[in-house]
Design a protein around this nucleic acid. Structure first.
Lengths: 296, 296
DNA sequence: GTCTATAGAATGATAGAC
DNA sequence: GTCTATCATTCTATAGAC
């Protein structure tokens, strides 16, 4: 009664509502526009937003909700309550929500649901880290975030661009971690040791984004792709270069080679590191002890 | 005349021979069996080996020879002496022979034409080294050795098996090279330096087979494939392990970590090494100087 | 009514295998 | 050469939010 003054003059209100709810039951996958169009064609004048208004009052605004309501009211009654396709839609939606919730824990916006683009980035990072660029298909990525392959292209223009984005973000995070670690060091040697520990830590960490960055260092990609990745790495290597220049080294030491030896030893941890063994800090300390025993 | 007693009694010999040579001209790509069948169907009784016998007398036993004879006798006379497809067959054969001749110089069986399998192995190694496992298709390999893709499967049951063969052979050669180098060393430290030099040399050498072995060390392949490669590497790492155990090291040094640092530094050369710069020997010497300055 | 994100189907290229 | 699978990508329609 309280809402009666918002309703049209004719008594057709409950009539229209019944039709809309009927459509929600018989054609749950139809959207506002389609339902409004269909009803109007049958002589029941209604706008898309009108359909949505009724849906909202009954908690049926989305395809998922309409399908769930259907499944709830005919629980295993008849065999074919939902068609296989409808079941699939529900499953994808569930997967998608689950992923969004899970990722919020890891990502930067802890708590709130993340943007789809970030979720795609994270999923791609995980797969790239695990199987490499060639070993990962756009299909795999889409499946992981609960989308269809084509939908990825709304967010990233190509697979290569997606990889470049992961790579860039990886080096951004890696650089930030290393910068923060180095800042805590008092002597040049201590700073180098902290860099090494942070570097190893980032490579073997749970965060797949920095792992991708680390792996890309010795990954062989197509020349065109490799070219786009080079600049990300340059800045990072510069940090190590200036740090080594500060060390009190004998003249006979080739600084360029020393830097390469350190990078090689550090990155090699990706191949042999196992979580239960030596910690990144211990490994870094040993590397310093073996490579620069007399420096302080 | 000297051969006349081997010929059949009837005067039909030249008649049959004419037919066979005719087929060599009109259907050069048909084999013994097909020609024999076709002629028999026309009432000219002849067996496949009979066809081949006549071909041999006229130096026409192979498709290549028949096509070349055709091209020779109508040199640019008419426009379409050979169909595009026939030309392609000739080109492939030429490529195949050229490759066999060239490879005989590099390979172990210098002089004699190598087995096709070895040629495939070598070509595969070159491509794998250049583009990686995923980046190389069976088609690419076949093209390089002048075979059709399917023919590879006569020699190797699958792409993965072919890769495993390359890998195994790579480590066989790598181990042999390193063993020979180490044998020349007088002190433990000298032996280690020689191992390092030989290792770098093998990785960056022209020989793609050892390069594949080196690259595989930090290559990420499917777990199933990775498992098949592990044993090849084990034996190699053992050489390094025993060599390090002989060194006069301080107690505080972790030998297992030292080995990993060395392997990392060595393998990392694959990423940065450029032919014009420092030689493998110089790099190895610097590594020793920086990592074991007080050892003799 | 308008806009964006997504679905769904289709395309052309290319892969490994035989 | 042929087969089948899968790839990255594109196209069109439309669901859902505002």
């Amino acid at each position: 009664m309280s809402r009666s003054d918002h309703q049209p003059p004719s008594g057709s209100e409950s009539d229209i509502e019944r039709h809309v709810l009927n459509y929600a039951r018989t054609h749950p996958e139809m959207g506002q526009a389609k339902v409004a169009e269909a009803l109007s064609a049958q002589g029941h004048e209604i706008s898309p937003s009108g359909v949505r208004y009724i849906w909202q009052r009954h908690q049926l605004e989305t395809t998922t909700k309409r399908l769930q309501a259907l499944a709830r009211h005919n629980p295993k009654g008849k065999s074919a309550v939902l068609s296989p396709r409808q079941t699939k839609v529900l499953e994808r939606a569930a997967a998608s929500r689950k992923i969004a919730r899970f990722s919020a824990v890891i990502g930067d916006d802890a708590g709130s649901e993340q943007e789809r683009s970030s979720l795609i980035l994270l999923a791609a990072a995980r797969l790239f880290a695990e199987r490499g660029y060639d070993g990962t298909s756009v299909r795999d990525i889409a499946e992981t975030v609960g989308l269809l392959p084509g939908s990825i292209y709304h967010h990233y223009p190509s697979k290569e661009d997606l990889f470049v984005s992961v790579h860039r973000e990886g080096f951004r995070q890696l650089t930030a971690l290393v910068d923060a670690a180095v800042a805590r060091g008092k002597t040049p040697r201590q700073r180098l040791e902290l860099l090494c520990a942070a570097h190893i830590d980032a490579l073997v960490a749970v965060n797949p984004i920095t792992t991708v960055a680390g792996k890309s260092l010795f990954g062989r990609h197509a020349p065109a792709l490799e070219k786009r990745l080079a600049s990300d790495r340059q800045r990072y290597e510069d940090i190590l270069r200036t740090l080594i220049a500060d060390l009190p080294l004998k003249r006979s030491i080739d600084q360029s080679l020393l830097r390469k030896f350190i990078l090689g030893a550090l990155n090699w941890t990706l191949v042999w590191y196992k979580p239960g063994g030596k910690s990144p800090g211990e490994i870094a300390a040993q590397l310093m002890a073996q490579l620069l025993p007399d420096t302080k």
